[in-house]
């Protein structure tokens, strides 16, 4: 939880950040169960300026992990600024604070969106409105893919690869993460990486913004099942839009269902995505990026397990993902590559 001193420093920051403010107060500070790499707090802000009294619900997302996390937060902030008010529902960014003297690390302040995030732990988190959520899910994913990355603020904070290098850059990155954080040899992931390098996908016709973690758990829905906020943009980058689609379609997020993302019939999901993205669905590329998604997943879960093992972060969700999700992805790869030979998903 935020300490009294941290709350006082936060108030001081808000007083400086809000123009012409005469009075600032915060209340109802509660930690929210969200994310594995940060602390998220819900805060009610009240302030007075020359126009009168105001109330505003905020989310504060704090990282304590140092430099790497600061970069992720800057990427997330750029993504929110790029998409707010432009057809992709995201919370309005209030401030990115890189000064560690306020809350002990970089933090992001967002306007709070009212709704709830369907959890990967809930068997039916959509309350009978699964298809409504599913149509929004694939339409929003398509809208992200439709955006011209050069019209966003991402090129200022992430690099722009050549189209033919998208796959290599991502695979190199996650292979390095695996090498850095693995606590034991990972023969299944290693076999998948070799398979991916030997069979690279065709370059995308156009680069796209890639959310990087578009899935159940990272969006919020309202009571009607409509998606009202897409969160967790810290892995956003510029790359191949099939990467985002493959990650969203990873069976890990589908639970026990055979549905696309656990939400919709596959055909309808891909039709909606194609229509919204104005891009052609490429089954071969999806197949490559799908196997890549399993590897990326293992890398993420391995990092979680490493942080937990080393005592850097002992949030039980890290132990859970580092174990359960890694076991699921290892099994998916083993089943695909051992049997079919070509590891086709579709």
């Amino acid at each position: 939880m935020l300490t009294r001193q941290e709350i006082d420093r936060l108030l001081g920051f808000l007083e400086r950040a809000l123009p012409d403010v005469t009075k600032v107060g915060v209340g109802n500070i509660a930690r929210v169960h969200s994310g594995v790499s940060r602390e998220t707090y819900s805060v009610d802000l009240q302030y007075t300026d020359k126009r009168g009294d105001h109330a505003r619900g905020l989310l504060i997302r704090r990282d304590l992990g140092g430099g790497l996390r600061a970069r992720e937060r800057a990427i997330e902030h750029a993504a929110y600024r790029s998409f707010f008010g432009k057809g992709v529902p995201v919370p309005e960014p209030f401030a990115l604070v890189e000064d560690a003297s306020v809350l002990g690390g970089p933090f992001l302040i967002l306007d709070r969106i009212e709704g709830h995030a369907p959890s990967i732990f809930q068997p039916d988190p959509y309350g009978g409105r699964r298809e409504t959520t599913g149509r929004d899910f694939f339409a929003i994913l398509g809208a992200i893919a439709a955006a011209d990355p050069y019209d966003t603020q991402l090129p200022g904070v992430v690099d722009t690869p050549a189209a033919e290098d998208c796959w290599r850059r991502e695979l190199d990155h996650w292979e390095r993460v695996l090498a850095r954080d693995s606590l034991e040899p990972q023969p299944i992931a290693a076999a998948a990486i070799r398979r991916l390098r030997r069979n690279p996908p065709k370059a995308p016709p156009r680069l796209a913004v890639v959310h990087g973690d578009f899935r159940k758990g990272n969006f919020m829905i309202d009571a009607q099942g409509r998606i009202v906020g897409v969160l967790d943009w810290e892995l956003a980058h510029i790359g191949d839009p099939m990467e985002d689609l493959a990650w969203a379609l990873d069976p890990l997020w589908a639970g026990e269902t055979q549905l696309a993302a656990g939400l919709l019939d596959w055909r309808e999901a891909i039709e909606i995505w194609q229509s919204a993205s104005r891009r052609v669905f490429n089954a071969e590329a999806l197949n490559w990026w799908s196997l890549f998604s399993h590897v990326k997943g293992i890398a993420i879960w391995t990092s979680a397990a490493r942080a937990y093992h080393d005592g850097r972060n002992q949030d039980p969700i890290l132990a859970f993902t580092g174990w359960y999700c890694a076991a699921r992805h290892n099994k998916m790869i083993a089943d695909r590559l051992a049997s079919a030979g070509d590891g086709m998903l579709l």
Binding site: P187, I188, A191, W323, Y324, A327, R328, N330, K331, I333, A334, D335, A338
Partner: peptide, 10 residues
């Protein structure tokens, strides 16, 4: 590899 993955299924 499959044996290990199967036996560790959760």
């Amino acid at each position: 590899l499959c044996l290990g993955a199967d036996h560790r299924s959760l």
